[in-house]
């Protein structure tokens, strides 16, 4: 695996982590709060994809990348649903 490929993945993870930190500084109310939460979970999903694809080598298999992507995406969606349900009232 080329070194550039690994460096790109590391930089992507740093950028996504910085974006998560930026989102945590926002404290909107109502729908804005759910949007921020959705953004945080989306960024977590993107970080997971980078680790799975680049570091764990799943980028070479569409089937397994999609399988793990679907499982993690489903988990994040369920997390978001529980978060929004728990934020009502």
């Amino acid at each position: 695996m080329p070194a550039r490929y690994l460096v790109e993945a590391w930089v992507a993870l740093l950028v996504l982590s910085a974006a998560t930190a930026a989102l945590t500084t926002m404290h909107p109310e109502g729908a804005g709060r759910a949007i921020v939460a959705g953004g945080v979970l989306l960024l977590a999903g993107l970080k997971a994809r980078v680790i799975l694809g680049r570091y764990l080598g799943l980028a070479g298999s569409h089937f397994w990348m999609n399988a793990f992507g679907l499982a993690i995406g489903g988990f994040l969606l369920l997390s978001f649903a529980l978060y929004t349900f728990g934020s009502k009232g």
Binding site: T24, A44, A48
Partner: peptide, 21 residues
């Protein structure tokens, strides 16, 4: 190293749910 990446992967999913949301 695959085990180590798994530890990393779990953290990037755990961190937002426990600390951030």
């Amino acid at each position: 190293v695959a085990f180590w990446h798994m530890v990393d992967l779990v953290w990037v999913l755990l961190f937002p749910i426990i600390y951030v949301l």
